[in-house]
Design a protein around this nucleic acid. Structure first.
Length: 433
DNA sequence: TCTGGGGTCCTAGGACCC
DNA sequence: TCTGGGGTCCTAGGACCC
């Protein structure tokens, strides 16, 4: 039998946003707690107690408010600055456990173990889990397997299955084949990484209901009916690694900035201000990535949840003659785009911009007529760099472009925001003497 | 009153070219 | 009646992820 060349671990924070909040406010322990999406819209993270109440991922806040109240629970606005900071700390501890790490999302990290064959990886994972908890306060689960999909699967067992929950670690390599078959048979096909609700429904029609069914299915045949993506998933379930570890994130291909409004907007002036703000925000991300954009897409939309509401969801792409990272040009283009799609008479719920055709900033496309090279010149670059560094040091929004507006009436709701425990002096937790 | 935001990849089909 | 074949590029839509 061929030896497995590598093993992968997936480490992720339990109920990550809720756990971050609990680190700084122990009174949240033991209570049902949810963290809400932007605009305090719906639940995006739930404590175990909240899950036990039957609160679903993505459930709107107004539908669970009473339930939470009755059970002494709490809903918090998302404090993204805090979570990003806690994530950095968690990832750096995890990095100490393998030279090969992929930070997959804010709360998940893959590790690859190459040359660890003589190690007891289960023991190794237990130590990592303990250290992350001790150094950051975040509880994590660890799954280990021969592919990323199997590591994901093991991680799920580690967090949910009674056989592993107490340890928080599941290493598939420790399990004899008959036990593996049992676990694979218990897991619904939709809970396999890469299988969403649509495919799960189609698979069930074919009699494929569990992870075990999918593992045993014919990859070639299913590729015809679905796509090469599903074929890869099946191979991964069988221990054939098809999805590589990405240690350095590939450069972004698009950058989106969009928000729902705190209330419905009807005027062109408000929407112009909103898209200007989003364009400026996207521009900061763009410069941070070291890229320039060849175009900017502008979109607005009405609220699809209001019955009988006249709907309008237009979008328009504005292309640049040469790629730019200049906030002023991006705002100007965004406003031009908005003016092309704006129609009076609708009540708008959301707007956004998408920067597309991104290229590394070092690549300077020759300008055919040389007319627009001026805005991206060196003085301009220094100005933008200064703008970014002041906003990084003094806090977002310290310096704004006039078009962004300084006190927008449409800003998102964040009524239940916790302090910046790790990012502002005012947010420091002060102990009693 | 009230329903998130930010990404990627794959495929099918049309336009266009030789 | 009958209407090539193969290649590339682009876009829209659909699916997935966190």
């Amino acid at each position: 039998m061929a030896r497995t060349p590598h093993l992968y671990a997936l480490v992720d924070g339990n109920n990550f946003y809720v756990s971050c909040e609990r680190v700084f406010d122990p009174t949240l322990e033991g209570r049902p707690v949810v963290v809400l999406s932007n605009n305090d819209g719906c639940a995006v993270a739930r404590s175990d107690e909240a899950k036990a109440l039957g609160i679903k991922m993505g459930e709107p806040h107004f539908q669970i408010r009473d339930l939470l109240k009755r059970h002494g629970g709490l809903a918090l606005s998302s404090n993204y600055t805090l979570y990003a900071d806690m994530s950095r700390r968690m990832m750096s501890v995890i990095a100490g456990y393998s030279p090969e790490q992929e930070v997959y999302s804010i709360d998940e990290s893959f590790l690859r173990f190459n040359g660890f064959r003589h190690w007891d990886l289960t023991e190794h994972a237990m130590r990592m889990r303990h250290q992350v908890r001790q150094w950051t306060g975040i509880p994590v689960g660890v799954g280990i397997g021969p592919t990323k999909t199997l590591a994901k699967f093991a991680n799920r067992l580690a967090k949910k299955h009674p056989d592993f929950k107490a340890f928080g670690v599941c290493n598939l390599e420790d399990l004899p084949p008959w036990r593996q078959v049992r676990y694979f048979s218990e897991v619904d096909v939709q809970d396999v990484w890469g299988i969403g609700p649509r495919w799960a429904a189609k698979l069930r029609e074919l009699g494929i209901r569990s992870a075990q069914d999918l593992k045993m299915a014919d990859a070639q045949t299913l590729r015809q009916r679905f796509s090469v993506v599903l074929e890869r998933t099946i191979r991964e379930l069988n221990g054939i690694a098809c999805i590589p570890l990405e240690e350095a994130p590939p450069p972004k291909k698009q950058i989106v900035s969009s928000r729902s409004f705190g209330h419905l907007l009807t005027t062109r002036a408000d929407l112009l201000e909103a898209v200007s703000t989003y364009a400026a925000r996207a521009a900061v991300k763009l410069r941070h990535e070291g890229q320039a954009a060849g175009g900017i897409q502008v979109f607005v939309s009405t609220n699809p949840f209001i019955p009988g509401e006249p709907q309008y969801h237009p979008a328009v792409l504005v292309s640049f003659s040469s790629p730019t990272h200049d906030t002023a040009r991006l705002i100007q283009a965004a406003r031009g785009g908005l003016n092309r799609i704006f129609k009076a008479g609708f009540r708008y719920k959301k707007a956004g911009v998408m920067l597309v055709e991104l290229v590394p900033r070092t690549v300077r496309q020759g300008e055919l007529f040389g007319l627009e090279s001026a805005p991206d010149d060196d003085r301009r670059n220094r100005l933008l760099a200064a703008l970014d560094s002041i906003n990084a040091r003094m806090g977002k929004g310290s310096l704004l472009f006039a078009a962004e507006g300084s006190r927008p009436s449409w800003a998102m709701r964040r009524e239940r925001l916790t302090p910046g425990y790790t990012s502002e002096w005012e947010g420091l937790v002060v102990g009693k003497a």
